[in-house]
Amino acid sequence: MKTSNPRAWFLVLPVILLVAFNALIPLMTVVNYSVQETFGDNLFFWHGIGWFQDVLGSERFHAALGRQFLFTGIILAIEVPLGVAIALSMPRSGPWVPICLILMAMPLLIPWNVVGAMWNIFTLPDIGLLGYTLNSILGIEYNMTQSPLAAWITIVAMDVWHWTSLVVLLAYAGLVSIPDAYYQAAKIDGASKFAVFRHIQLPKMKKVLTIAILLRFMDSFMIYTEPFVLTGGGPGNSTTLLSIDLVKVALGQFDLGPAAAMSLIYFAITLLVSWAFYTAMTKDDQN
């Protein structure tokens, strides 16, 4: 018989305290900031819902939010299918497994700002390998400091380069957990490769893919360092994603009130999308 002891909840207490200290209390402070105006010196004046009204009506916020959804949509549409495809073509056993895994894990180990700097140099038209090859050898005009399209292609390529591995590793973990009996049964039934993928591999990968998509959604929705180092939000404002804009407002202009209101709207959107997504993906398990 299973015994249950509610006092076990005390074991969770340290985590609750830690989360309160590093997440909850700062978040409460942001809520407080969002309804006040400050001129520094820890002096605050009541401003009501004015900042929220400003942010919701601001063209700049709409544009940044639009760019953010576009960016996240593009990278998810590329990274998830690509990651699954790579995981499917990786060997399940033998000496190549560790080599593939290490190669895949490498981009994940590189810090964000280094990735940004690497791609910045890589794409410089005069000395960068990619920039020079495209401009001077292939004759394709490519300069991400001048063309918004080139800047977008670069940040998307960089994110795909950096993070597809995460999807690969998670999908691969799901794949190797499938017992051989499933494949043998499929072979006896004469199932096609696609049928095996559709009815065995994809359902078995569903859980890890949920986590992969959620992680990639949240990370890319909050992405800051890489595009900041790479393009600085430019040319113009064309790659100013939401968090870059937020930091400009909060630290560049030191408008803590509007920045707090913006963060809360940002947070609410992240929370809603993550919840909706998680609920939709785990719905079948409940039955």
Partner: peptide
């Protein structure tokens, strides 16, 4: 708690 810049309305929300 001064640095948290509390106001009565936001306090009520959290309460």
């Amino acid at each position: 708690l001064d640095w948290m810049a509390w106001t009565i309305p936001t306090a009520l929300v959290f309460v």
